[in-house]
Amino acid sequence: MSKTLVGNHIRKLRFNYDEMTQLQLADKVGVTRQTIVALEKGNYSPSLELAFRIANAFNLPLEEVFFYGDNTKQ
């Protein structure tokens, strides 16, 4: 299975957000830890609703958490 085109900065944001654990973020947004693991690895594109919930958990706009394609080109 190829990696999804929707990337994210969740791992970095968790670290900056009082070193929040995957489980804490999962509980905060209402998913299992497995889903956060898959998101961080780029193995899963979240639904729009989940993407907004994650962005809200970090008090950031959606585009600062998620990006489309390879953001290293930006």
């Binding site: 209402g30 998913v31 299992t32 830890r33 497995q34 889903t35 898959a38 899963y44 979240p46 639904s47 989940l50």
Partner: peptide, 9 residues
């Protein structure tokens, strides 16, 4: 163990 199935599940 997870007590619910989320969207990925």
């Amino acid at each position: 163990e997870p007590s619910f199935a989320d969207e990925m599940d």
